[in-house]
Design a protein around this nucleic acid. Structure first.
Length: 279
DNA sequence: TGCCAGGTGATCG
DNA sequence: CGATCACATGGC
């Protein structure tokens, strides 16, 4: 008995590699596929463990029912949004047209996933002063230790309550370093006060500063004017716009002026470009 | 070895 | 306020 797969065709502005490797998510991993033309990723989201495979403008999700697609993946993959318009607007707004054109063409298939707020809070607390491969490892070990097993060897993201009731001794296995205390305290704060709804409330969480709050605002709260500035964005804005790497204020001002409500999209194109080309 | 990675909290002028 | 420093961990 074979489980159902679901196929979507005629996708525009969509590329799995760009989507899963632009730094917004940490639980999707590239896997080999038989078809050399295809790109495949396995990952866990919304309690489901699936493989997504893209060939040309088609996407196959396995396993997936029509119901799963309509209720979960369509939204998660942000398929309702017209990225053609977003790119057009960004190109019009940025005065140095070569620069935005370059980064948008490079990451043409990026889409901002509509991710779970709790998962983004935890993930981006772990991300601070850390590198992406290690962040992924930490999150994987955290899920193995504290998440429900949804199929053999595959673990869901831990619940708030589970982390709130954990101790630093238990979490030592995850090798989060000093961040384990941040996670436990943040989980307890959310148990007590409920979820943060904006930047200000995010900053109340222990271990959440301006940068992490911006990431959570963007990826978890879908506040698309957020423009997280990390070391990579500093580098790319220095390289492309000639802004001094230490001048975060000027970068924020530039983003507000030129990208406005679309800052989050611009930031992802910039980040993905610099992470791929740079270093 | 020392530096770096999607920084933050605490502390000090 | 803004500047400075410690903070685990692992790869290079």
């Amino acid at each position: 008995m074979r489980e159902k797969t679901y196929k979507v065709e005629n996708l525009k502005d969509f590329n799995l590699k760009h989507i899963f490797e632009c730094g917004q998510c940490f639980r999707w991993n590239r896997v080999e596929s038989e078809d050399p033309e295809a790109i495949s990723y396995k990952g866990i989201s919304q309690g489901k463990y699936v493989t997504m495979t893209q060939v040309g403008n088609s996407l196959i999700i396995d396993p997936c029912t029509k119901k799963d697609f309509d209720e979960l993946w369509y939204k998660y993959l942000d398929l309702d949004r017209n990225y053609g318009n977003i790119k057009k607007m960004l190109l019009e707004k940025d005065n140095k047209e070569n620069s935005m054109k370059k980064v948008i063409n490079f990451g043409y298939g990026i889409r901002l996933l509509q991710q779970d707020l709790w998962e983004t809070i935890v993930s981006f607390i772990i991300s601070q002063n850390n590198n992406i491969p290690r962040i992924k490892g930490c999150i994987e070990r955290l899920c193995q230790l504290k998440g429900d097993e949804i199929s053999l060897g595959v673990y869901d993201f831990p619940k708030i309550e589970t982390l709130a009731n954990s101790t630093e001794e238990e979490l030592a296995k995850v090798r989060l370093g000093y961040r384990s205390g941040y996670l436990i305290k943040t989980a307890r704060q959310i148990m007590e006060k409920g979820f943060p709804k904006n930047q200000e409330e995010l900053l109340d969480l222990h271990g959440v500063g301006p940068k992490v709050a911006n990431c959570i605002s963007l990826f978890g709260l879908r506040k698309y004017d957020s423009f997280p500035i990390d070391v990579w964005v500093k580098r790319v804005m220095s390289e492309i716009y000639g802004i001094d790497e230490k001048n975060v204020k000027e970068m924020k001002a530039y983003a507000e002026k030129h990208f406005g409500d679309l800052g989050g999209f611009a930031q992802q194109y910039l980040f993905y470009y610099m992470r791929s080309i740079g270093s």
